Simulated scan of single mutants.
Amino acid sequence: MTTTTTTEDRPRTHPLRQTAPGLVNRTFLRLELRRFFRDRVSVFFIALLPAFFFLIFGTQGFADQDIGNGNVVLYIAISMAAYGAVTATTGVGGMAAVERLQGWGRQLGLTPLRDPSFVAVKALLGLVVAAIPVVLIYLLAWFTGAEGTVGAWTLSALVVLVGASVFALYGLAVGLFFRTEAAVGGASGILVVLAFLGNIFFPLSGVMLAIAKFTPLYGYVALARYPLTEGHLENGDHDPLWMAVANVSTWATIFALVAVWLVRRGRERQ
């Protein structure tokens, strides 16, 4: 007796099921990238606002002075690229709050997508988005007189890009905690304060500098500048490499653990 297998009898594979070992679900990542780049207004402001800041600070009369393995123009470019990158990744992470309001989190809860994979995809999406202001600012720096060794250019850009993924986790954690559309703006607002404390916009000293060394952006920016400055600060002090690495590692661990916990808590409530 011959049996026929209908379409309904065939096993179905969920589109978000992990087809290969690994933390990143490629299908989910592709959907997230396509969705982000359809929003041309956000892409426009993510690319141009940090570049505008660079043109303001990086074209001043003092910008051609030598510093470490390059000049001040490159120093400012690294600083503004780092700020643009973390702003971009924070925005990507904060979008999780809007997704929760739209019921997207409930839909993902019905799929085989694992919680760590969800967080990893968000972090990788933030890394791709962060490349937009970084590439633009480094190109502007090249054409406006930035000077530095090959190592200062390449290593600083690499650190800016990779380190920015930490703040995708930060944005995700803030978005999941507040669960409102204002979460994205709130995360960005807090980031401005952290940028001042992180020694990005102007050099700190004294007690403020001592406090700043424990804030999230300080270690990230110090690590990005290290190929250029080798840890030397404007006031003559020196930050060892291990301190910047320890700062970034500690905050990355904190943000990742909080983000995963909030994702799981959100699914339990739904």
Score class of each variant (00 low, 15 high):
P21A: 09
W153I: 02
G186N: 02
G151N: 12
G236V: 02
R100V: 09
F214N: 05
V41W: 11
A183L: 00
V184T: 13
R38K: 12
L16K: 04
S205M: 11
V119I: 15
Q60Y: 08
L191M: 09
T229G: 01
V245K: 00
F201T: 10
G126D: 04
F53H: 07
H232V: 15
G91K: 01
L136T: 06
A168C: 04
T180A: 06
V184G: 01
A195R: 07
I67E: 09
F255L: 06
G94I: 13
Y138M: 11
P112F: 03
G189S: 09
W261G: 05
R264V: 12
R26D: 00
R225E: 15
R40H: 09
I137D: 07
T4D: 08
Q107G: 13
S156I: 01
P15N: 10
L155I: 13
S79E: 07
T149N: 05
A182E: 10
W251T: 00
L49M: 13
G219H: 01
T253V: 08
A210P: 06
T3G: 05
Q18A: 15
T6S: 11
T180I: 10
E234T: 15
G68N: 08
G151S: 12
T149G: 04
E32T: 10
L125C: 12
W251V: 00
F196L: 12
Y83F: 14
T180R: 03
D115V: 15
L233Y: 11
A47T: 13
S165A: 14
L108F: 09
V129A: 04
A164G: 13
M243P: 06
D39E: 10
K122D: 02
A152S: 10
L140E: 10
A20H: 14
F62T: 08
